[in-house]
Each structure stands twice: as structure tokens, then as C-alpha cells.
Computed example of a mutant assay.
Amino acid sequence: MIQWISGKVVENFQWSDSVFSLRVITESFDFKAGQFVRLGLNVGGEQVLRAYSVASAPNESILDFVIAKVEGGLLSPLLAELKPGDEVNITQPAGGFFTLDEVPDGDDLWMLSTGTGIGPFISMLRTEQPWRRFKRIVLVHGVREAQDLTYREFINECQQRYPGQLVYQPIVSRESLPEALSGRIPDLIASSELQDACGINFTERSQVMLCGNPDMIQSSREQLKARGLEKNTRRKPGQVTSENYW
């Protein structure tokens, strides 16, 4: 049964003009890294809800949500205006099956994301599970502009804490960045440019998680299937696990 709890904003961190992290403290509740909750505000006497993945780890006292401000949206522009001390409603229990518990074992774990779809991966990387289960982890983040490459400091800390285990590959489509690739994730898979940049190929021992734009997910799944990687389900375990992020 879905219940409401009240959260208090402790920080509204602006990554860019269109992306922000809303950090909220609330009473503790259980969730798994990769799951989502719904945030809600009372607008004109009605509760307006939207689902957002939690980017913090399950054991952290402050919930972290990375959110894209949608022009003309009913909720995200209002969330973007919240200040420390303001309240926001949160549903519990958390939902969704985009968790590492649903992913079979393998050698390499690819985390392919666009935009705010990086959020659940940040939550997973804040736990011990991926570092314990996989020899190498590849985090790919596709955005339009470099300013939307979120959590860079945390990613750098992970690379220092787990040397040689994490590969981070940014992709920026609308400007040039020396360390970034340019283009769409499925196209870069098709040309093998992504694999070459990361120094790792997709094999039957790879596990791939996709989160973000539905077009990216669909096209990437097609490219991965052409390389012998199948959709992962509970009935038929495979190598590709996905979640549409809007």
C-alpha cells in the first residue's frame, strides 16, 4: 500500500540551467539502489506526482534526486524553485526492478545512461555490490552539453578508490570536449567507437544496464542483440536490462 511521508529540502544544487539535484531528509525507509519513488507537491489543491530514481545509497540519511527541469512541466519547474526548509511529499515504499539483484553475474558491467538516467547508476555505485560482483564497470553518460555531466567529483573519487575497475566515458552531442565522444550511444556501439574508447568489448560475459531516453534504449538494445546480447528477464536471464526514464 502506497503511503506518503514528508521530506524537508536540505539542498537544491544546480548542475546547470536545466539539471539540478534535490536533496531531501526524511524518516528512513527501505529501498534498493536503482529504485524510484514519487515526489509530490500540492498545486492548486491537487497533488502533482512524478517518479524519480533515488541517486543516494540506501543507507544514507539524505535522499538525492537528480532532476531535469522541463519547460512547461507541471512539477519539475516547481521542484527547481524549492529552497532549504521547504517540504516535499514522497511516496513509499520505493518501486521498480532496475536493481543489481535482477542482473546476472558477469565479468563486465556496462551502465549506459542519458541525461538524468545516470541517477540510479550513481546510487548503485554508492553501494559495495557492483564493485564486489564485477571485475570492470563501464559508466557511460550521454548529454547535450558538458555542463550536464553530473557527479563528476563522485566518479573521480570512485576511480581513485577502485583503481582500474571503473571506466568513465562521457558523450557530449552539442559541443566539443577533449575526453568525450560525440554522437548517440547506439551509433557509437554500431561503429565500435564506444568499445574502442573504453578498451572493452561486449561479450557473452558482459552485463549491460540501460537507463534514459526510450529511443536510445531501443536502438541500443538492437545493436547489442546484433552482438549476441539478449534481453534479461526473470524467466529467461540474459545480458541486457533496461528502464525507460521518461
Rank of each mutant, 00 (worst) to 15 (best):
E128F: 12
I155A: 01
S6P: 06
V208N: 00
V167W: 00
S206E: 01
I137G: 01
T114W: 00
W246Y: 14
S123C: 12
G45I: 12
Y151W: 09
L181I: 08
D30V: 13
S191Q: 08
V88D: 03
A51Q: 11
S21L: 05
V43Q: 07
A197P: 00
P214S: 07
T127C: 12
V10R: 06
L39M: 08
R50C: 13
K32W: 10
G106D: 07
V140Q: 00
E175Q: 14
V9W: 00
T241G: 13
P84L: 06
N213E: 03
V19E: 09
A33K: 03
I171W: 03
P58L: 13
W246R: 09
F134S: 04
F36D: 05
F31E: 04
S206N: 03
E193K: 14
G183Y: 07
V43R: 07
T150V: 13
V19T: 10
A146F: 10
V140M: 02
I62F: 02
A197H: 01
E243G: 09
P130M: 15
D64V: 02
V138P: 01
G85N: 13
F29P: 04
V240I: 15
E153H: 07
P58V: 14
L177I: 15
V167R: 01
E175M: 15
E60K: 05
W246D: 13
V9F: 00
I155R: 00
C198A: 11
Q92T: 09
L181H: 01
S123G: 13
A55I: 06
I25P: 00
F29A: 08
G73H: 15
Q223V: 01
I5S: 06
P237A: 15
V140G: 01
T91I: 05
M111K: 04
M1S: 13
G115I: 04
G238H: 15
I62M: 11
L166K: 01
S18R: 15
G40C: 12
L188F: 05
E60G: 09
F202E: 00
A146C: 14
G199M: 03
V143S: 09
R221F: 04
C211L: 03
Y168G: 02
L149I: 12
G115K: 04
T26A: 14
S173L: 07
N12D: 08
N156W: 01
V54Y: 05
L210P: 00
K83G: 12
E46C: 10
P77D: 12
P77N: 11
L49K: 15
Y52Q: 10
D215Q: 14
E179K: 11
G119N: 11
V172D: 11
L177E: 06
N89C: 07
N232G: 09
G40I: 12
C198T: 07
G44S: 12
P84D: 02
M216K: 03
Q92F: 08
S56F: 04
D64K: 03
T127M: 10
S18M: 06
R152T: 07
K225P: 02
I90C: 02
M1K: 08
L82V: 06
K83W: 02
P214G: 02
D108I: 13
A68T: 15
D17H: 15
D108M: 05
L100C: 11
Q239C: 14
P178H: 05
